[in-house]
Nucleic acid binder design. Sequence first.
RNA 1: GGUGAGUUACUCAAGCGGCCAACGAGGGCGGAUUGUAAAUCCGCUGACUACGUCUUCGGAGGUUCGAAUCCUCCACUCACCA
Length: 399
Amino acid sequence: MITKALEEIRRGTAEIIDMEAIEKLVKRYYETGETYTVKAGFDPTGADLHLGHTVLLQKLKTFQAHGGRVQLLIGDFTATIGDPTGKSETRKVLDRATIMANAKTYQEQVFNVLEESKTTVVYNSKWLNELGAAGLLGLTTLFNVARMLERDDFEKRFKSGQSISISEFLYPLLQGYDSVELKSDIEIGGTDQKFNLLMGRHLQRAYAVGKEQAVLMMPILEGLDGVQKMSKSLNNYIGITESPKDIYGKTLSISDDLMWRYYELLSEKPLDEIAQLVEDVKNGTVHPKTAKENLALEITARFHNEELAKLAKEEFNSVFKANQIPTDMDDFDMEDGIWICQALVDAGLEPSTSQARRDIKQNAVSINQEKISDDKLNLGCGDYILQVGKRRFAKVKVK
RNA sequence: GGUGAGUUACUCAAGCGGCCAACGAGGGCGGAUUGUAAAUCCGCUGACUACGUCUUCGGAGGUUCGAAUCCUCCACUCACCA
């Protein structure tokens, strides 16, 4: 039982620091029933969670199944600084109101994956506001600039002469201090968080908390393009609140290479089963498309349910394979004689009439499944199905 | 505080008085091909019922028949010095 639990914990991780400590905690749980705490921080800088976040959530859930109590840390204070991670430029600072709004929607979505009864949500502004200037200065004496500059992106920016604000130096310190307050046993995060996660260990020792958190890092999930990390701002994400149709369709649009990555990090299939699948696809027993369909079904079902996932699949096949129209489209009522380009804009299929004209010229627009080429067309009374490209549809009623 | 360089469309990046709605690359979108995959080829990529008109090149003024291009002021970014 314990070995099995540890296997699951280890699955898909990029790096674990102090696996022995984790083993001890899990063992102790199974022997005495004593729980332990697992911390994970979220920056409420965007409003919606996407699959990239669920890689972490999924791992937290695994811990919950084996005696872990999750400390879900909402970095409402640190979000006002902006973690330098990732992009090599100073991040924009958000105002308090949007941060709080984001934090709220995060919480709602998190419990799609996590067990609420084994989760404590905490806000770091609670103690960081009280830390004060004196406390902050005390914190800064525990670390030095040379070591801070060891951090990968700081080093790069420093060498290439890009700006690093002092506040960014504080970010890792504050995140580490959270671990002091929470007395976390384990902290998990993405590989890009390594420096910050280790800071938690460092500070726990410095503040004599009596333990040093183990650190577990998950790989960063690539977005739909397969290159950059999944993020809302790059618009290469699958949001967990999206419709079954979208989740299914987006998953199917990823490349074959990326599919294996998603299998590894997102699927709940056992690893040996996935290895077998890779083999089958390689030797031609299983078509890659089939493998991808199954992945899409699994992911869709996780955030909705199996029935809806199957419906999404059928819908998808009828639309794209059989070239039929989708069943649910947005409806619009329009005035008699409306110009086709205007209709496309009003239906939200095109951003401007100029773009609509271009697409018509390029044979991208159909009415009732018939391609059109006249961009001066006016629509008389009747029902129409407008289509732009392969995937944008709308139902229009002209009176 | 001083000196110098810079700010161009989603991003990078040309243009340095008319040939500029602005080279090129990436991205995005569309077409062909396909498994709505990858790869490849081709086209499009400010707005406007549109062979014309309007608004764009950090912001505000000015010079000129004419400005992204020249001048003045302001804001911001970067580099070197203090």
